[in-house]
Computed example of a mutant assay.
Amino acid sequence: MTVPNEIMTIAIASLATFATRFLPFLIFSGKKETPGFVKYLGEHLPPAILGILVIYCYKSQILHPGFDSLLAFFAGLVTVALYYVKSDMLLAILFGSATYVGLVYLF
């Protein structure tokens, strides 16, 4: 790839990225009511995506059970328990990840 092609590729990717960030603010400005389907997606899509990510993370553990699966499920339980106690998603994810890494390192 030549230097002008690389510059054009970076420019197009940057333009597309910025457009997707600013377009919702232009379309859904404070002048008009936000459509119902957008409110529905905003309310129901994040939990659905989180559920899909959890299933994706544990699929190999379920298909090929072993000692590592036990460590992963224990770290997941730590994450869920800490979230319910502290109600802080970032803290729960960080501590759960650290628990898994620590357990894998120890065993």
Rank of each mutant, 00 (worst) to 15 (best):
L94D: 03
I55E: 07
L41T: 02
I10N: 00
V104Y: 10
S97G: 15
P4W: 04
L50E: 04
Y56W: 14
Y40D: 13
F37C: 03
A75K: 04
P47H: 01
A92C: 10
I52T: 06
S87A: 13
L103S: 11
G96T: 11
E43T: 09
I12T: 12
L50I: 06
Q61L: 06
F37Q: 12
V104R: 09
K59V: 12
I12L: 14
Y105A: 15
K59G: 03
I55G: 00
V38F: 03
F28L: 10
S14W: 07
A92E: 05
R21L: 15
L50G: 05
M89I: 14
G42A: 08
G96M: 06
G102F: 11
F25C: 13
I55R: 08
T79Q: 13
L26Q: 12
G102D: 02
P24H: 06
L70M: 08
P47K: 06
L50D: 04
S97Q: 03
F28E: 05
F25W: 10
P46W: 08
M8W: 14
F25M: 11
L91W: 00
L50M: 13
I7T: 07
F37E: 07
I10H: 08
L106Q: 01
I12S: 01
T34M: 04
F73T: 00
L41G: 03
F28T: 03
F73L: 12
V80F: 12
Y84L: 15
F25I: 02
G51L: 05
M89H: 00
S29P: 11
F67V: 01
K86A: 09
I7W: 07
K32H: 11
F73M: 07
V78R: 07
T9V: 09
Q61V: 01
I93M: 10
S69W: 02
P65V: 05
I52G: 01
V54Y: 02
F22H: 12
V78K: 08
V38G: 05
A11N: 11
M89D: 04
I62Y: 06
I12A: 03
T17E: 04
L23A: 02
F95H: 02
Y100W: 10
F28K: 03
I93A: 03
V3I: 14
M1Q: 14
G36I: 12
G96Q: 02
H64T: 14
L26F: 12
V101G: 07
P46D: 06
F74S: 13
F107S: 14
L91T: 02
S87I: 09
F74W: 08
L94A: 13
F67Q: 14
T17C: 15
T9E: 07
T79K: 11
V85R: 13
S29C: 10
T17L: 15
P47R: 05
Y105E: 11
S14K: 06
T99G: 02
L106G: 05
L26K: 00
F28W: 11
G51D: 01
T79L: 13
Y56N: 10
Y105R: 00
L63N: 03
F107K: 03
A81C: 07
R21T: 14
L70T: 02
L71Y: 10
T99E: 07
P24C: 03
L70R: 07
H64L: 12
I7A: 06
P47E: 10
T79P: 05
S97L: 13
G96K: 00
L91H: 03
L50T: 06
L45I: 01
D68H: 10
M89V: 07
L53K: 02
